[in-house]
C-alpha cells in the first residue's frame, strides 16, 4: 500500500473510530485534550535515566486502551517509522555516553543504553497518547475544543477547510491512480513519459470537483466560519475524567509507584 492509500485509510479509520458509540467518545473533547497535554508534559519531564518511573506512565495508556476499547495493533503500526528516527538518535547516545551506571549479573548498563530506552519510551508514549486522543475525538470535536480554548476562529476554520479539501483530493487521486494501473499492468508506478497526461487528467478532474465543493459551500451559506453542531457530551463524566486523570497522573509522576510495589515483594 502506498502513501496515498495509507493516508486515505488512516483518515477513514480515525473518523470511524472517533464516531463509534464508546465510552471514551462521549467525553468532552476539551477534557481529553487537556488530559493528553498534561500527560505529555509529565512524560517529557522525566529524567533521562528514570526508566522505571517513566514506565509507570504506561498505566494511563493501558487503562485507556482497555476501557476505551481501542485497537492496540493499529496503534502500534504508527510507531514503526517513528522508532527508526528515534533509534538513530538513541544509537548516538549509546556511542557517546559509555559511563557505567550499574551492573546486572555482570552486564554493564551504561547511561547511553538507559537514555536510548528512555527515548523509545517517551516517543512511544507520546504517539500513543495522541493516537488515543484522536481515536475518541473527531476533527470537528478537536476544533470545537480549540475554540473553547480561545484559539482564534480563523485558524480553526482553516484547519477544518484543509481537512475537508484533503479527503476529497486524496480520493480523486486514488481513483485516477487505479485507472492508470489497470491500463498499465505490472508497472510499479506511473512512467515518466506518462506523467504529463496523467497529471493533466487528474488536474482537470480535480478542477471540476473543487469547483463543485466551493460552490456548494457558498450555496449552503458559508460565511467564513463553520458552525459547530452541539452534541450532548457527558459533562459530569467529562469533569470527573479530567480531574481524576489530572490527579492520578501527578501521583504517578511524583511517587515511585513501581518501586513501592516492588518493595512489597
Amino acid at each position: 500500500m502506498d502513501k496515498l492509500d495509507s493516508a486515505i485509510q488512516t483518515i477513514h479509520q480515525m473518523e470511524d473510530m472517533a464516531e463509534e458509540n464508546r465510552f471514551f467518545c462521549h467525553i468532552h473533547p476539551l477534557a481529553k485534550v487537556l488530559v493528553t497535554l498534561w500527560y505529555l508534559v509529565l512524560v517529557m519531564s522525566f529524567d533521562t535515566y528514570n526508566l522505571i518511573g517513566l514506565a509507570g506512565m504506561s498505566l494511563y495508556l493501558i487503562i485507556l486502551f482497555v476501557v476505551g476499547e481501542v485497537s492496540v495493533k493499529t496503534a502500534f503500526r504508527r510507531l514503526r517509522l517513528l522508532f527508526f528516527g528515534i533509534f538513530l538518535l538513541g544509537a548516538a547516545n549509546v556511542i557517546f555516553d559509555r559511563e557505567v551506571l550499574f551492573r546486572l549479573h555482570g552486564f554493564a548498563v551504561t547511561g547511553g543504553m538507559l537514555s536510548m530506552l528512555s527515548l523509545f519510551l517517551k516517543a512511544g508514549f507520546a504517539v500513543l497518547a495522541a493516537y488515543l486522543l484522536m481515536a475518541g475525538t473527531t476533527v470537528n470535536g478537536m476544533c470545537h475544543a480549540l475554540r473553547i480554548m480561545h484559539v482564534p476562529g480563523i485558524l480553526v476554520t482553516l484547519v477544518l477547510l484543509i481537512y475537508r479539501y484533503l479527503v476529497l483530493m486524496l480520493k480523486e487521486a486514488a481513483r485516477m491512480r487505479q485507472a492508470y494501473l489497470l491500463r498499465a499492468p505490472g508497472q510499479k508506478g506511473v512512467q515518466m513519459r506518462a506523467w504529463g497526461s496523467f497529471a493533466g487528467q487528474m488536474l482537470l478532474r480535480s478542477m471540476e470537483r473543487a469547483e463543485q465543493v466551493f460552490d456548494s459551500m457558498t450555496l449552503r451559506g458559508f460565511q467564513g466560519e463553520f458552525p459547530f453542531l452541539k452534541r450532548r457530551w457527558r459533562m459530569r463524566t467529562s469533569i470527573v475524567y479530567a480531574v481524576s486523570w489530572g490527579i492520578a497522573l501527578f501521583v504517578l509522576r511524583k511517587f515511585p509507584i513501581f518501586y513501592i510495589a516492588g518493595g512489597l515483594l
Partner: peptide
C-alpha cells in the same frame, strides 16, 4: 525545569537491586 526531582542510579550493586525491584513492581 523538571517538575519534580528524579531518582539517580549510582554505579553500585544496590542500584541494580533497586532497578530489579522497580521492574518487578512495574
Amino acid at each position: 525545569t523538571a517538575l519534580l526531582p528524579d531518582y539517580a542510579l549510582p554505579d553500585d550493586d544496590s542500584a541494580a537491586g533497586t532497578a530489579v525491584s522497580g521492574l518487578a513492581g512495574c
